[in-house]
Amino acid sequence: MSDKEPVKSIITPTRTEYTYTPGPSAQRSLRALARGKLVGEICPSCNQVYYPPSGACARCGVATRDEVEVADKGTVTTYAIVRVPSENIDLELPYCTAHILLDGADIPFFGLIQECEWDAVRIGMRVEAVWKPESEWGLNAENIRYFRPTGEPDVPFEQFKEHL
């Protein structure tokens, strides 16, 4: 053996490119979003409304197809205050992510809460979407900038505790 430093690691940069397919349901939903509408889909088997739609009701394992508009208002069913940076997220710290059960939907989705003190966010709080200016709408979930409190009375936990 020589007295040279051992090779402990080598770096091999790799680059791969992928083309992702949203599928028909997400396409329909994205097109609606570009018109300022939140369009979910109904499971033909259990009649539950999915937003955003993925094309399937995972509970039943069947394709969803019939569209239904849901409100851009809803209830915070649970939430977290994020105080640590993440590589893929370009938001000022801290920020609040919440499970929001939109009026008319049967499954909560992840949304941002802003225009609210962090210690004022609570389970059961009513929130509404704040949209980007219409001129900036695209085929993108980010047309909604965030959700903010509506000031309506809180919804009792009992009413949505199955939708955390």
């Binding site: 083309t19 399937a56 394709a63």
Partner: peptide, 13 residues
């Protein structure tokens, strides 16, 4: 190239 459907769309049937 199946560009129309998601994997789930393809698997269900």
């Amino acid at each position: 190239n199946q560009v129309e459907l998601t994997e789930v769309d393809m698997i269900i049937p």
